[in-house]
Each structure stands twice: as structure tokens, then as C-alpha cells.
Write a protein that binds this DNA or RNA. Structure first.
Length: 471
RNA sequence: GGCGGCAUAGCCAAGUGGUAAGGCAGCGGUCUGCAAAACCGUUAUUCUCCGGUUCAAAUCCGGAUGCCGCCUCCA
């Protein structure tokens, strides 16, 4: 099987061949820690989490680096507003990041470096840029000279001349070219700063990624990822810095995820519609959120709405309901046909949407087999499918709970808002059973209607009556 | 002004030139005392529109229209 990946650099799908056979070195831009994480952060982090899980399942040894930007203008501004230090602010939001991402069952990256821990490496890269005549100093600030880097614009497909014609750039006469960007910013009084050959200051935004990827992955590596909005200028500038300094190709494959819209609107400050992860998790199961985020191809925009989330929740319930049906059946040792189909979908640029479709195909087929009561004859098929579903669940980051536990938790959450308690429900179910035995259908239906009114639905199964929370 | 993306059923959505996955909702059925769940069937002769290439196009090319993103901090 061959993995194909859409490479932003070149704008087409390419066969994935890592620089070193069997190993993948990957860098993804993490958050600037000045605020809580929103659902858009969640998408990016979930998408790359799944990519790492899949690469590992495909047999690669993955070194995954995801940074924290813990010093920058926004952090300085917010910290001074809150009357705390920048380090303290960063610490607070890094802790929040972990709380949100752990809840979403995101695995930790191999290395999670912070910009402020790598000032030396940053300074060294800037010094290399001076050696190559790609950097210059103005009043203690250091800039990268874009006109001296021939490939500038190759990732985003822009030409300097075209962009200058657009003239939507703030004019700074000190810069040689409007697109020159800061490598090092001199410190104003009260700002966090570090010693450098150009005076006390702090790194520009882009340089930390060039420096830290160099430290942990080397001067050339396989995959660089992030949100689509980072293509320009952030990633374009990283390429300029790294290739300028090291004289080697930087990342081989560039992967960018699309945005999350909220009810068909972009999240923006003016609309005030930033949707934070912790708020989403108030209302929805983390696995519903993951399933939702993976239900579109990662490069397409996805629209968050209560309706879409309810659909994902229904979908997740459906898969868990099947898992519950085969609780008695033990999973096979080896992976089978279902896993192969899923792999085929994932090999096509991590097409989780197609992969999820394949899962539902399987769910339907398996329910049919179970309905037909052909369990002895179809047992090998069921065992194999169960193993594959669990394996797929491990890639998507779903099905991590025992089905019984999943439904129990759902019940207790649902009952928090309900006027009835489990004892009452069980009592009524027993009463209804007695009524049904004596063919008192009126009383039986009355009980069922009463519970339905409290958002509780009954299922009369061969082995007895169970109750569930309605959506 | 520059660069890029998208347009598939009521809704969401996959689709690698060879005859439209999957989910949700709806309708009909099997099962059931009746339901629920599950399953079966049904819901796009057609993929925004107009041209072109081809034996063959949702898929490739050109054009039109409509949405969206980036170019300023942004996942």
C-alpha cells in the first residue's frame, strides 16, 4: 500500500517517501499561549494526532514535535493587562491546553518545546543568516531580507512584485522591503528579554520554529504541518529562514488543515463567536467532537453547529451500540478486510471522511449478521471485524471506552437534567413488565409514555428491557 | 489589487476518466401486544451553468455565476 499526501508545496498529492526509510520526522505549529483554545485549535491538533497515529500504525517510527509559542506581542500585552508575568501567563494557558487536549484524548507529542527554552538556538540561526547576508539590523531589531532569498514565495505561490502591487502592508521605512520580517525584536522597558549580539530582546515569531525544528529534527525533515492560515506568512518565512541559514531543503511535505466555521460564519473577534473547547465539552462527549472533526476531509472547511454535533453523537452511539452487541465475542488477533479498506482510505491523503463511511458500512453489515443469528457460522468474520473496529478506533481516537461504561455515563449525564432517578426508572420498568405479563397494555404504555416525557426511551430486548437517554 | 479554494439529494458528505460511498432526516416494510433498537427497500437518469477534449467526464481543459479563505494577529 502506498500513502499519498497532499503537499501544499506543489499543490498536489504526492507519494509519501520519508527522507530516512521507516522514520518520519514531523513538526506542527502549536498554539501561542495567551488565551484558551477554541474548536479550531482542536481541529488542527486532532487532525495531526490522527496523522501521527496512522503513520505509526503504518509502521513508521515517528518523531513528532509540537511547540508552544510562549513569548510574543500578544502574550506581553495580555500579561500586562492581567498584571502577571509573561511566563506565568504562558504557564496558565499551557496547563489549559493540556486539560483540553487530554480531554479530547490527544496523545502528547514526542517533544513539546517552548520558544523561551531555545533562545540560544534561535540566536545561532540568526547568526547564520547574517553570515549569508540575509539579515540586517535596524535600531536593535533584526530583519530578514526577503529580496535576498530567491525562493521567497514558493510555498504560498506569491511573487513579491505582485504583493507589493496589492499594497496592503503597513509601511515601515526602516525595512528594506515591506515583506521583510523581524527575526529579533529589541526589548522595550519592562518586556521579557534575552541577551543577544544585537542587544537585549526577544525572538520574532517565525524564527523559533526554524530553530527548534533544527534542534529536534535536523535541518531537513519530512512533514511540517499547521492551519491553512499559517501558509503565509508564517511558513513561507520559516522556509526562508531555514533554507537561507542551512542551505538545504527544509520540510519535504507541507500539510495544512482547513478552518472550523460556526454556523457558517468564520470565528472572529468582531462576531464574538469564538467557541472554546471546554464549552463544547460541556455539551458533547469528547469522542463525538473527534468524530465530528474527522467527518470532513482535513483540508476542507467544516461547519460547527448543534445539528452537526447531534448527528455525530448519534453516529457515535450507533457504533458503540454495535460494540455492545458484540461484547461476548472476542476480537481476532490479526487485522482483516475492514482494516484494509480503512487503510486504503487513509492512504489517500488521510481521508478520514471516507474511512468513517467504511466504518458505517461495516456497522450495518455486522448488525445484519447479528440479527440473522448466524453467530456460530459467522464468528470468524465478527471476531475479525471487532478487532478491526477497535484498531480503527485507536487511529481516530474513538471507542476508547467499554460500551457499557459509555452508555452508563451517558445515562448519568442525561439524568442530571432529569426529574427522575434511576431507582424510579427501574421500579417503573418492573411495574411495566408486570403489566405486560398480565396484558395490561394501557398501563404498560402509560409508563413508557411517562418516561418518554422525561427524555427516557425504553428498548424491550429479548434479554430484558433497557432504558436510554433520548437525544 | 494579488494569490488560492470550493460548488454532489431536504441537510452533512466521499468520490483516484469507466457509468453516483456513507451518515442524518423522510417514507414503505420485517420484527414487536404497540413501540424502541436493528435490518430490508425507497429518496440525485445525475453532480451550479455554458462550451471543449475523449469511445467514455462529477472527475481533464476553457469560460460564466455564486460562495469562501489568505495577503494584518489567527488553527
Amino acid at each position: 500500500m502506498t500513502l499519498r499526501v497532499y503537499n501544499t508545496l506543489g499543490r498536489k498529492k504526492e507519494i509519501f517517501e520519508p527522507i530516512e526509510a521507516g522514520k518520519v520526522r514531523m513538526y506542527v505549529c502549536g498554539p501561542t499561549v495567551y488565551d484558551s483554545c477554541h474548536i479550531g485549535h482542536a481541529r488542527s491538533v486532532v487532525v495531526f494526532d490522527v496523522i501521527v497515529r496512522y503513520l505509526e500504525a503504518a509502521g513508521y517510527a515517528v518523531t513528532y514535535v509540537r511547540n508552544f509559542t510562549d513569548v510574543d506581542d500578544k502574550i506581553i500585552k495580555r500579561a500586562s493587562e492581567m498584571g502577571i508575568g509573561t511566563a506565568q501567563l504562558a504557564e496558565k494557558f499551557i496547563a489549559e491546553f493540556y486539560r483540553d487536549m487530554d480531554a479530547l484524548n490527544i496523545r502528547r507529542a514526542t517533544v513539546e518545546p517552548r520558544a523561551t527554552e531555545h533562545i540560544d538556538a534561535i540566536v545561532q540561526v540568526i547568526e547564520r543568516l547574517f553570515e549569508k547576508d540575509l539579515a540586517y539590523v535596524v535600531d536593535g531589531d533584526v530583519y530578514f531580507s526577503v529580496t535576498d532569498f530567491a525562493d521567497y514565495g514558493k510555498l504560498s505561490g506569491r511573487k513579491l512584485e505582485d504583493m507589493e502591487a496589492g499594497a496592503r502592508v503597513d509601511v515601515d521605512d526602516r525595512k528594506r522591503n515591506p515583506f521583510d520580517f523581524a527575526l529579533w525584536k529589541s526589548a522595550k522597558p519592562g518586556e521579557p528579554s534575552w541577551k543577544s549580539p544585537w542587544g537585549r530582546g526577544r525572538p520574532g515569531w517565525h524564527i523559533e520554529c526554524s530553530a527548534m525544528s533544527g534542534v529536534f529534527l535536523g535541518e531537513s525533515f519530512d512533514i511540517h504541518g499547521g492551519g491553512k492560515d499559517l501558509i503565509f506568512p508564517h511558513h513561507e518565512n520559516e522556509i526562508a529562514q531555514s533554507e537561507g541559514a542551512f542551505g538545504k531543503p527544509f520540510a519535504k511535505y507541507w500539510i495544512h488543515n482547513g478552518f472550523v466555521n460556526i454556523n457558517q460564519e468564520k470565528m472572529s473577534k468582531s462576531l464574538g463567536n469564538f467557541l472554546m473547547i471546554r464549552d463544547v465539552l460541556e455539551s458533547y462527549h469528547p469522542e463525538s467532537v473527534r468524530l465530528f472533526l474527522l467527518s470532513n476531509h482535513y483540508r476542507s472547511p467544516i461547519d460547527f453547529s448543534d445539528r452537526a454535533m447531534d448527528e455525530s453523537t448519534t453516529a457515535l452511539d450507533k457504533i458503540y451500540a454495535l460494540m455492545e452487541r458484540f461484547e461476548e465475542i472476542s476480537a481476532a488477533e490479526n487485522s482483516g478486510a475492514l482494516w484494509n479498506s480503512f487503510r486504503e482510505a487513509m492512504d489517500d491523503d488521510f481521508n478520514t471522511a471516507r474511512g468513517i463511511g467504511i466504518v458505517f458500512d461495516a456497522v450495518r453489515n455486522l448488525n445484519r449478521l447479528l440479527d440473522e443469528n448466524l453467530v456460530p457460522a459467522s464468528e470468524p468474520e465478527l471476531r475479525s471485524a471487532k478487532a478491526d473496529l477497535l484498531k480503527i478506533g485507536d487511529i481516530l481516537g474513538i471507542l476508547q471506552e467499554a460500551p457499557k461504561q459509555y452508555f452508563e455515563k451517558k445515562k448519568s449525564r442525561g439524568l442530571e437534567k432529569s426529574a427522575v432517578d434511576p431507582e424510579t426508572i427501574e421500579k417503573l420498568i418492573a411495574e411495566r413488565l408486570a403489566a405486560r405479563k398480565s396484558k395490561n397494555w394501557a398501563r404498560a404504555d402509560e409508563i413508557r409514555d411517562f418516561l418518554a416525557g422525561h427524555n427516557i426511551v425504553l428498548e424491550d430486548r429479548p434479554e430484558g428491557t433497557v432504558w436510554k437517554i433520548k437525544e
